[in-house]
């Protein structure tokens, strides 16, 4: 299941994807526009920066921006970083593997075998969906929201 962390991380990337090239947005603006706790978002943005999805810049004009175009950042890759593997249950993952207490033989466990297929299907969809494509799904309202926030910030600075 997608956690709040994963969801907010994606919302932040969608926000940054809506900025004009060369622009960056402070965490406070992303948090306010998307109704996310700023403190929580600070941690999420740090993880996204460590994984190389966003760049950060200090100073008055500082903030976060995408490290590469939104079309090159895949949703599945971001979720792996924030939420861990895409598998629906821990025994279907290698990197974050956990055995089930009640399982007698995981090699023949039907639930696990089905979940392995689910995992591959999830990866198939999310790894082929870019932030840019996702941004377009919601229609123009999301784009307008980012533009409004950016222009409000510009007015405050002026």
């Amino acid at each position: 299941m997608l956690t709040r962390k994963g969801k907010y991380g994606l919302k932040a990337l969608l926000h940054l994807g809506g900025l004009a090239p060369g622009q960056s947005a402070p965490v406070s603006e992303i948090a306010e526009t998307n109704n996310i706790s700023k403190k929580f978002l600070d941690g999420i943005m740090a993880e996204l920066r460590n994984a190389g999805f966003v760049n950060s810049r200090y100073g008055r004009e500082g903030g976060f921006s995408l490290s590469r175009p939104g079309k090159d950042i895949m949703v599945g890759h971001v979720i792996r970083v924030l939420d861990g593997p895409l598998s629906p249950i821990p025994c279907a993952s290698k990197a974050y593997y956990q055995t089930c207490d009640d399982c007698e033989d995981e090699k023949t466990c039907q639930v696990r075998l089905v979940m392995l297929e689910v995992r591959n299907a999830i990866a198939g969809i999310l790894d082929n969906m870019s932030v840019e494509q996702m941004r377009k799904i919601g229609g123009p309202s999301g784009v307008a929201k980012v533009a409004r926030a950016a222009s409000a910030r510009a007015r405050v600075k002026a």
């Binding site: 890759h77 792996r80 970083v81 990866a123």
Partner: peptide, 24 residues
């Protein structure tokens, strides 16, 4: 050791990928 693409650190920087490698 069979790995699935769903387990891999795709699209990340090398530093993150190395951390993943150490974990696995």
């Amino acid at each position: 050791l069979e790995l699935s693409p769903a387990d891999l650190p795709l699209g990340t920087g090398l530093r993150f990928a190395l951390r993943w490698f150490r974990r696995i």
